[in-house]
Design a protein around this nucleic acid. Structure first.
Length: 290
DNA sequence: AACTGAGTCAACCGCCAGAGT
DNA sequence: GACTCTGGCGGTTGACTCAGT
């Protein structure tokens, strides 16, 4: 499993050839994780190459940084994306495209890597199911008129049933979803190993704001109390049903979807607030309709 | 039970920008 | 200005899991 790098790296971060030959690649071990966590707890992060050497890790600085940011950070949130997170990703991606780090800045506890993976594996899958390109107007139409309203519905339904407990916004985080790879490292409590060292793993509030909208809207959804039921499957039952239903819908010749079911009210709502298919949809449009 | 294909995601790679010399 | 070093970013890969056969 553990691979020893054999003079492979060629980038500028490479160390001396003698040292390079000892650099490790591949999945991190528990020992390496703990070493990195402990070192950062004592000395802080940054200066990754120096950090890697000082900590005695036979890893590149880049590798240490990535491991820390994407996995070991105490505030990193794991598990399924909540409906409100999905909604925000769709919205922000429509504005910024593949600016994953920028998008991640607006989803506390989520990493750019995670969002990127979500987009590539899940969103693009839906585009494929709809026989259109993820960047096409057709798919944007589908997201705007079908998916995003669906997510908003779910958010409100969850809020209604959860009774508005704002602390419940992060059920996916606490659910201990199995991270299958967790990359050769298994932790008894299913938490980030950082919790073993840093005592205060602050549960993020599950609240985020979209300051892009004209007026800042707090998108905290009171208890998107969805339960991540089946051990790690990213798509909740409601989503499964939703996509099973809409995969049957095909755009007309003009690439437009005809919505003739319960979501048609949403579409009417869009026109009521002056949103046309020519405009880029946004969360603001969605929330205007509330 | 064995095999296979699809889905997932951690980790790596190449490129680039900014800071320092 | 040229060069080196470092960190950050987006794209890609490959190991792994799991459902279906």
């Amino acid at each position: 499993m553990d691979v020893v790098l054999q003079s492979r790296s060629s980038n500028s971060m490479a160390a001396e050839p003698e040292e390079e030959a000892e650099l490790r690649r591949g999945p991190w071990t528990v020992d390496e994780d703990l070493t990195l966590i402990n070192y950062i707890a004592d000395h802080g992060e940054g200066r990754w190459n120096a950090l890697a050497r000082a900590a005695g890790l036979r890893r590149t600085g880049k590798s240490c940084r990535l491991r820390w940011l994407n996995y070991l950070r105490p505030d990193v949130k794991r598990g399924n994306f909540t409906a409100d997170e999905q909604l925000l990703i769709l919205d922000l991606h429509s504005r910024w495209g593949n600016r994953w780090s920028k998008i991640a800045q607006h989803l506390p506890g989520r990493t750019d890597n995670e969002i990127k993976n979500y987009w590539r594996t899940r969103v693009q899958k839906h585009a494929k199911q709809l026989n259109c390109d993820v960047g096409s107007a057709t798919f944007k139409d589908a997201m705007r008129y079908l998916w995003m309203p669906h997510l908003v519905e779910r958010i409100h339904a969850a809020a209604a049933t959860a009774g508005g407990d704002p602390t419940m916004g992060d059920t996916s985080c606490a659910s201990g979803v199995t991270s299958k790879a967790a990359t050769a490292t298994t932790y008894p409590d299913n938490n980030s190993p950082a919790s073993a060292v840093t005592t205060s793993r602050s549960a993020s509030s599950g609240s985020f704001t979209s300051e892009l909208c004209g007026e800042e809207k707090n998108l905290q959804v009171h208890g998107s109390g969805e339960k991540t039921t089946s051990g790690g499957d990213w798509m909740q039952d409601a989503d499964q049903e939703f996509w099973a239903m809409h995969m049957q819908i095909q755009p007309d010749d003009g690439g437009l979807f005809h919505v003739d079911h319960e979501l048609s009210g949403w579409v009417q709502g869009f026109s009521d607030v002056g949103v046309s298919a020519d405009n880029l949809w946004s969360l603001e449009d969605i929330w205007k309709m509330q």
